[in-house]
């Protein structure tokens, strides 16, 4: 990056850096350096732990914090009950962990800590992470499906009421759409998070470069970009919630396929 180039590289925020000289850590030949990504996973886990801990007072009449935690568990519980039914309750721990982990990761990644020199890292903007979570959900669907229905689970690829001659055409399509699920699940979250952060970074470079280019450009480019950034920050907070919700919702829908095979 030369001095004439833009001072803000919108992709730099996704760079993974090993922390505290851990780049040499290995298990069985695989590198397990404790990176900034891992650090923010740790922070997410700790913050989420503290959040839920605050709701563990188990009071009969809940305080605000307990109410907040209970409304999250109740939200996941009712979502699973609506999509899977009574059998869905046993997936509450997994879906709750998934939803809250993604939600907190997205939210923490949006914190304006750059002002005080700490750079938040949104690990949900890496498809290695979202892909693993998606494959995890997909694996649970497969395990539950084959555990409950055995080989009968393959009838998932033949929708109910399909005419016999149509089965050879429908089944491959259904199979492909089924196999695409983990990719769409993982890519959706990764793309939404990355796009939002890139957009914010690009706009911030407009603000910085425009303001540095003089009074006129500050007014024409810098100020409108800044106002747009404020709005997009609000939009990104919404997207952070929606993407976590979509991930959890789709996972519960896929679990429904496995749990209640037609």
């Amino acid at each position: 990056m030369s001095a004439e180039q833009a001072k803000v590289d919108p992709m730099h925020q996704f760079t993974i850096e090993p922390l505290g000289g851990s780049q040499g850590w290995e298990i069985a030949g695989y590198n397990i350096a404790f990176t900034n990504s891992a650090l923010w996973m740790l922070i997410t886990t700790v913050v989420l732990f503290l959040f839920v801990l605050g709701g563990m007072k188990r009071e009969l009449v809940p305080g605000r914090w307990q109410m907040m935690v209970e409304s999250f568990t109740g939200f996941i519980d009712s979502m699973l009950e609506a999509n899977v039914g009574k059998a869905g309750r046993k997936y509450v721990p997994y879906i709750f962990s998934l939803f809250m982990f993604i939600l907190f990761a997205n939210m923490l990644g949006l914190l304006p800590l750059g002002i005080v020199g700490i750079h938040p890292f949104t690990f949900t903007s890496h498809f290695t992470v979202t892909g693993v979570l998606a494959i995890l959900s997909f694996t649970i669907v497969l395990v539950v499906g084959f555990w409950k229905h055995g080989l009968h689970f393959f009838s998932l690829f033949v929708p109910q009421g399909t005419p016999l001659p149509m089965i050879p055409i429908i089944a491959p399509i259904e199979f492909i759409s089924f196999m695409v699920r983990p990719f769409s699940l993982g890519l959706r979250l990764f793309v939404a998070m990355m796009a939002g952060h890139v957009l914010l970074e690009v706009l911030s470079s407009f603000v910085i470069d425009g303001t540095n280019a003089g009074f006129l450009w500050a007014g024409v480019v810098g100020l409108p970009s800044f106002l747009l950034m404020v709005g997009i920050c609000a939009l990104e907070l919404l997207v952070a919630g929606i993407q976590a919700y979509v991930f959890a919702l789709l996972t519960s829908l896929y679990i429904n396929d496995a749990e209640n095979l037609h």
Partner: peptide, 29 residues
């Protein structure tokens, strides 16, 4: 980085699932 990403994700998401999801959420509910 893929191995470290996957490793630490398993560590921390595992912690989240077993400690928070399995340990704390049932009590809250």
């Amino acid at each position: 980085t893929y191995s470290s990403q996957i490793f630490w994700l398993f560590v921390f998401f595992g912690l989240t699932f077993f400690v928070i999801g399995r340990g704390m959420v049932p009590k809250v509910m």
